[in-house]
Computed example of a mutant assay.
Amino acid sequence: MAGMKKMMIALTLVAALCWSCKKPQGFEYRDTKNFRIDKLGFDRSSLMMDLVYFNPNSFGVNLKHIDCDIYVNHVYLGKYALDTVMHIDRQSEFVLPSKMEVDMKNVFKNALNVLLNPEVLVEVKGSTRLGKAGIFINVPFDYSGKQKVAFF
């Protein structure tokens, strides 16, 4: 009888834990700051920037991995990956220092369009690995929006 009581308590705790856990939502992109060219080359270049995001979840999460592809005006620009562990507070903005390798031939495809147009369409598609209490899941994201580009 004592074993049955312990099992019922354990099942009740597991059920309560499952009902209290919500699947984490993906982060919302907010802004790009401190954009700079780290290394300029004819074939490949390195870009550095700070990406500002917002955590819409009502709970803090741990960010373990980001993997995404970046497109400008529907042309593939490069891949961005971040392999680190950082805690993100609930319903807060946070900054991800980022470095990205860019294939310059794809940049040249967009160069004239970017020079003639003050806005470009930026698309970021990928996934993040988010977790809480040591349990991580992949959360896909798909951002698309116009960004102002100022050269002068």
Rank of each mutant, 00 (worst) to 15 (best):
M1W: 13
A2W: 14
A2Y: 13
G3C: 08
M4G: 06
K6R: 13
M8E: 15
A10C: 14
T12R: 03
V14S: 06
V14E: 05
A16S: 12
A16G: 13
L17I: 10
C18L: 14
C18P: 00
W19F: 15
W19A: 15
K22D: 12
Q25K: 15
Q25H: 09
G26S: 11
G26P: 02
G26F: 00
F27G: 02
E28T: 01
E28N: 04
E28G: 03
Y29M: 07
Y29H: 12
R30I: 07
D31V: 03
D31N: 14
D31C: 02
T32I: 10
K33G: 00
K33N: 04
N34C: 04
F35W: 11
I37S: 05
L40A: 13
L40M: 05
G41C: 02
F42Y: 14
R44I: 15
R44D: 13
S45Y: 05
L47V: 14
M48P: 02
M49I: 04
M49K: 03
L51Q: 14
V52L: 03
F54Y: 15
N55M: 06
F59S: 08
G60C: 10
N62F: 08
K64W: 02
K64S: 10
I66N: 00
C68V: 02
I70R: 04
Y71T: 02
V72P: 00
V72A: 01
V72D: 00
N73P: 07
H74R: 14
H74D: 15
V75N: 06
V75H: 02
G78D: 10
G78W: 08
A81C: 02
D83Q: 07
V85D: 08
M86A: 08
I88M: 06
I88D: 00
D89F: 03
D89Y: 02
D89P: 05
D89L: 01
Q91Y: 04
Q91H: 09
S92K: 15
E93T: 07
E93M: 03
E93P: 01
V95R: 04
V95L: 05
L96I: 12
L96V: 10
L96G: 10
P97L: 07
K99A: 10
K99S: 11
M100R: 05
M100E: 04
M100A: 06
V102E: 07
D103M: 12
D103Y: 12
D103C: 01
K105Y: 13
N106I: 03
V107K: 08
V107T: 13
K109F: 08
N110K: 12
N110R: 13
L112S: 15
L112H: 14
N113F: 11
L115R: 12
P118M: 11
P118L: 06
V120M: 15
L121V: 15
V124H: 04
V124G: 07
V124F: 09
K125Y: 07
G126I: 07
G126F: 03
G126L: 06
R129H: 05
L130F: 02
K132I: 09
A133F: 10
G134I: 06
I135L: 13
N138H: 12
N138Y: 07
N138V: 02
F141E: 00
F141Y: 09
Y143Q: 08
S144A: 12
S144N: 05
K148G: 09
A150T: 14
F151N: 03
